[in-house]
Design a binder for these strands. Structure first.
Lengths: 337, 337
DNA sequence: TTACCTCCCTACAACGTTGTAACCTGCGTT
DNA sequence: AACGCAGGTTACAACGTTGTAGGGAGGTAA
């Protein structure tokens, strides 16, 4: 079907290796020969068979990105950044969805499908610290997220505790005292929920505000519906509050909607802050004050680090934990003062 | 590094072909031999080298999906459905972003990177009818979107005209007469904007409502900001309207926000309808009435059609245009009556 | 002239897999 | 006893590419 080196070689009247040399810009080829070959390539519309090339080289020119679900805006935006950065490096991205399911994540790490790629950027959600051993794989791996921290694996993520502390400090500075938290996970210590809650508690303590467990609403997932339900639960509980910290933007947006439907004004009656700085945070009503955790930097850094390891695992040195800078994106739902 | 058939064969004391036969469930292998081989496989942790297998078979087990930008919710949700369906078929998905840029789209169609895949699901946004010839590629292709219609290429998409007509009819039935349209593209005939506008005009005509060009706001892109800007422009123009048809949900949400900020009540003063039925349509305030154009069906059908063509291009028969069913998802921003 | 070096090019093997053809063994049939 | 056949296994080639080694032609230096 498609033309091969052999076809080009035959047409140009040279050996296949010469054609290969032309394609790979090997210097010692006579200009006349080079031109002959290039004419033949053009005539046949030859393009190299990457599979064969990969078999020879042991590289595929592709990396895998595993995320829970692209329908979640956070991961969609992450994937967009990863793909863009990979393209800059001439590498292509294969996207896998795990649904944040522990078993599927564990299975994926061993999947022969990864053989189509040179390495994996892995955003774990279902696995936990006890699964750290499963990360000891024989291919280049960069870990995202905060479900597992292990010094033996490269890891790029955000400063969850610091950023969450800053979010709560921001609310406190603006005069709020009763801050509800949406999206906590019962008993979790490591993980986005646990870490962000920890940051929240640290900020309370630093400000001398006693912690009221009644103000915490737990959810299993972090979808809008969960945020909405959690807020309904808080309102039903009848506990008073003057601010809400959604542990991510989606939760915050869902909660904000219920708040408004219930007649509360945002931010007058209740200030709302989120976490992630999704595109949509800018366009909600009111627009959502949130923490920008440096997602783009994370994506770029993860790709670069993975490519380093692929290029030369030894030269890449020991595994690193790299943390993004964060900032508060101040918008209407929680004005500064 | 990784174990190969040779290693397994040596350990098991058989030929590599026998190992290959065991792996591929070739029937004529003595149980004792089979077991010996399987033990060796387990011991070495052997997994097949897919690149080599692909080189032999001419298949890669991967398909490519090209979309403008994963950060756009519509395409993120599309990709999520495509990946899920592909996984069901044991196929992996490589995602490319074109930014909706015509040149990048044309380049992608010829890119040797596609050699890593067996076929392409291509969501064109920048190319137009005049580029139809570029779709005559030598690999299996399924086209999405409505920028190009060509009988010689497989195409899965939505009933834009019918669905848009239904949206406008819905507004008219609920008593609205002055319907603003957000997101039109100047002079476009084919393309989502052109087709949806056409459906809108058909509905107006059928209802005997004269068309007022003042009610149409043009935008280049379909982001929230564009919807917001377009609505500001309409308000500045001072033209009266009692309903808004956002040509997609993102535009509608952006527009709705500006409407509310300006003091209009939705839906009392102005009803708003969108198009796409994004997840977030359900959680805006008010929740967004919109057209569900059958995106999930489109994704599944596109994958299945592509796999048919990959399996046997001849048996797949002549190219088909397949259109999804649509429905109006009735929510708060535009009640039925 | 001889020796050597550089430039240009080629033959061959190899990457890891699977299809093809063929081989050997043992059994049942004639 | 000779034959055929099926089951179980193997050697070999091939997929399309690139690295290695080497060969021939021509130039330069001794």
């Amino acid at each position: 079907m498609a033309a091969t080196l052999h076809d080009v070689a035959r047409l140009a009247g040279v050996s296949i290796k010469t054609v290969s040399n032309v394609i790979n810009d090997y210097p010692h080829v006579r200009p006349a020969t080079r031109e002959k070959v290039q004419t033949a390539i053009a005539e046949l519309g030859y393009t190299p068979n990457l599979t064969a090339r990969n078999l020879r080289s042991g590289r595929t020119g592709a990396i895998a990105l595993a995320v829970p679900d692209l329908a979640l805006s956070y991961f969609a935006e992450l994937a967009a950044h990863v793909i863009a950065e990979a393209e800059r490096a001439g590498v292509v991205v294969l996207v896998e969805q795990t649904d944040g399911d522990r078993d599927r994540e564990l299975e994926l790490l061993q999947s022969p499908r990864l053989k189509l790629t040179d390495g994996l950027i892995f955003s774990a959600l279902g696995m936990g610290q006890e699964d750290a051993a499963a990360l000891a794989v024989d291919y280049p791996l960069v870990l995202l997220g905060e479900r597992i921290f292990d010094p033996s694996v490269d890891h790029v993520t955000m400063r969850n505790v610091d950023a969450a502390r800053a979010a709560t400090e921001y609310l406190i500075t603006s005069g709020r005292r009763r801050i509800a938290v949406i999206g906590a996970h019962e008993g979790e210590v490591i993980g986005s929920a646990g870490l962000r809650l920890q940051g929240h508690l640290e900020a309370l303590e630093a400000a001398g505000i006693p912690f009221d467990p009644q103000l915490v609403a737990h959810t299993t997932l972090w979808h809008r519906a969960n945020g909405a339900n959690a807020m309904r639960e808080l309102l039903d509980r009848g506990v008073g509050f003057d601010a809400v910290f959604g542990l991510n933007d989606t939760l915050a947006l869902g909660a904000m909607r219920v708040l408004q439907v219930s007649g509360r004004r945002v931010p007058e009656d209740v200030a709302v802050i989120g976490f992630d700085d999704l595109d949509e945070a800018e366009y909600s009503i009111p627009s959502l004050t949130t923490v920008d955790p440096g997602q783009k930097w994370i994506a770029r850094t993860a790709v670069q680090r993975l490519l380093e390891k692929i290029a030369d695992a030894d030269a890449a040195g020991t595994p690193r934990l790299q943390l993004a800078d964060f900032r508060i994106a101040e918008r209407e739902s929680a004005p500064a003062a």
